[in-house]
Amino acid sequence: MTGQPILSLSDVSWSYEEGQAPVLRQLHLQLQAGEAVGVVGRSGSGKTTLLLTLAGLIPANYAGSFAGQRLAAGEIGIVFQDPETQFIGLTVEEEIAFSLENKGYSDQQIERRIEEVLQLVGLQGFEARSPFELSGGEKQRVAIASALAVSPQILILDEPTSELDPKGAAEVFQLLHRLRREEKMTIVVSSHATEELARFCDRVVLLSEGDLRLDLPTASFFQQIGLLEQEGIFVPDMIKLHHWLTEQGQLQAEPTSLTVEEMIAAFQRMEEQRRGRHERLNHSL
C-alpha cells in the first residue's frame, strides 16, 4: 500500500519516568487508511503503551519522557481490555451520549448518532439497559459503540477479547470484520488470540521489551515460527502444520494456510496433485 499514512510514529521513545528505561524504543510504525494491524507481544512488552501512544494519549495525558514524532490524519477511538473501567453512564444510551456531549453535538444529533452506532454494533433496543448488566461480549460492543460515536477513522483496541468467553470474543471480532468491510475503518488491535489475528489482520507487529521486532504482512509474520515461539507467542497449529508439510516437500509455502478452512483447501489441492502424479506414473508405465 502506498500514499500518505493515516497515522505514523517516527523514532518514538517513551519512558513513564524521566531517566528510567524506555518502555518504547525508537519505534517506527505507519498505518495506511483501511488497514487492519495486529499487535502481539508478551504481557509487559509495551503493547498497551504503544496503543496509548498511537492514540495520542501518550504523551498528552501522561507524565514521562517522549521523543520522536507522531502524526495523525484522522479522528481516533480507543477501546480498553476491561470495558467496565471506561463505563460512566447508567444506561447504554448515556454511555454513548457522553463523548458526543463533550464534542458539543446537539440533542437531535446525539439521538441520531446513538441509533446509528447501536445498529452498527448490533445492539438496537439496548438504549435503556445498564451497561453493567450485559454479557461480556455485549459490554465490549457498547465500549466499541461509544468509541465509534464521534465517527473516528481509526479504531484502536487493547486486548478487547482477553477477558471474554469464546462467544463474546467471536462477537467482537465479527464486529471488527464488519467495521473494516462496511465502514472502511482503520483498525489496530492487540491480542494474545493469534488465531483470531491471523484471520483478521493485513499486517502484524511484534513488540518485545519496547522494540518493534517484526512488522510484516500476516502470512509472512506467522512464518517466523522460531522467533515467535522464542518470544513466547502462540503460533496457530494450522500455520505450523502448513509449514511442516512444506518442509516435507508436500506443499508450497505460499499461500500459507492461516485457518482450518484454508488448511483443508490446501490439503485437498495437495491430494489432487498426488493423485495426478500417480496417474501420470501409471500411464507412463
Binding site: P166, L241, V260, F267
Partner: peptide
C-alpha cells in the same frame, strides 16, 4: 453446547481421520 473443538481436531475431522488426533504432534 456452543463449543468448538481445537483446530487440529476440526482439520482431522474434515479429513475423516479416526480415532481423532488431539494435538499437532499426533496429527503429524
Amino acid at each position: 453446547a456452543q463449543v468448538e473443538p481445537p483446530a487440529v481436531s476440526r482439520f482431522a475431522q474434515a479429513l475423516g481421520l479416526t480415532p481423532l488426533p488431539l494435538t499437532l504432534a499426533e496429527l503429524q
